[in-house]
Design a protein around this nucleic acid. Structure first.
Length: 298
DNA sequence: CACTTGACCTGTCCGC
DNA sequence: TGCGGACAGGTCAAGT
């Protein structure tokens, strides 16, 4: 589920309400979702306050006053949903039905704050996790360490993008976009959408794509991510933001999950195929696989 | 080494 | 209805 725009939306929501809150206690069900020593959790998170909420790629970072930090990955079905204390919650909540049914069978971790509010980490498939680690070694975490540049940072130029993606010259462009060490945050939805924007077939080898085309792709990736953030991300199935709200980008998707429907550019029926082991959506008219050219022969 | 394929889980949908 | 299989936004470990 959550790719960069969804995680960014959750991050903004959490940043708006969690800063300066104090954690009272934390409960969890399976250690797979919360792989932390109870002793450390109690020592460094109970009575700690939240000083910063950040995002890196598809990872969420919640920094505490004690020098410890939560690193959270939502993977496919994770949600982080904030619920105010009983008194102030209730009428007017954007997703009252979801929020009033929590915790539910997918709830893996519950953060209880000193003011009575709660943050639920729900994750149907148990792929996601909430890891506690010293802030000082956050950048040495195996997940963080592998991440490539942030696509929405100012210094993510087309030169940087080309340099990064050319490391995967011998693989197809979709797999390259999904590689978090090339750039951080693109997943299946936005890979398909970006490739449609520039008329690239997802199976095209990176080595066969010109720098000119890669510059267009660089712009398309950024534009698509920004557009999605402006609509609160994509709710394909499970995704909700910190307040339980769904994202509306799917209404703007050009090809993703639109198989059988007309391409918004030319009217040809959108096809679904399998590339890089993932369900992949293309317009077979706009996105034609080009023949192998010079670049790979060297 | 670079790249591809399964595995990790649960739920849902589709065909028989 | 019920059952088996394929599939789902992501990442790893294993395999080639």
């Amino acid at each position: 589920m959550p790719e960069l725009p969804e995680v960014e939306t959750v991050k903004r929501g959490l940043a708006s309400i969690l800063i300066n809150k104090t954690i009272k206690s934390i409960s969890h069900d399976t250690p797979k979702s919360f792989p932390n020593e109870q002793r450390l959790v109690e020592q460094f998170t109970y009575h700690a306050s939240i000083i910063l909420v950040e995002r890196r790629g598809k990872g969420l970072i919640i920094q505490l006053s004690t020098g410890y930090t939560f690193l959270i990955h939502l993977k496919m079905t994770g949600q982080l949903v904030y619920v105010d204390s009983e008194i102030r919650f209730g009428a007017g909540h954007p997703n009252k039905s979801l929020v009033s049914s929590l915790p539910d069978r997918s709830t893996r971790v519950v953060f209880l704050f000193s003011d009575g509010s709660k943050l639920y980490f729900n994750d149907q498939r148990k792929f996601g996790w909430v890891k506690l680690l010293p802030t000082a070694v956050l950048n040495e975490d195996s997940f963080i360490k592998k991440l490539g540049p942030e696509p929405l940072e100012e210094d993510f130029t087309d030169e940087i993008f080309i340099k990064q993606i050319r490391r995967r010259n011998r693989t197809n462009v979709k797999a390259a976009l999904l590689d978090q060490s090339v750039l951080a945050g693109v997943g299946n939805i936005y890979a398909d959408e970006s490739l449609w924007e520039v008329g690239l077939h997802p199976s095209q080898l990176v080595g066969d794509i010109s720098d000119t085309k890669l510059k267009q792709l660089h712009k398309a990736v950024i534009d698509v991510l920004l557009l999605s953030i402006s609509h609160g991300g994509s709710t394909n199935k499970n995704y909700v933001d910190a307040f339980g709200r769904k994202g509306s980008y799917m209404a703007f998707a050009k090809v993703f999950r639109r198989e059988g429907k007309p391409c918004p550019r030319c009217g040809t029926e959108v096809n679904k195929l399998r590339v890089a082991g993932r369900g992949t959506h293309i317009c077979p008219h706009c996105q034609i696989l080009q023949k192998t050219k010079e670049l790979t022969k060297k």
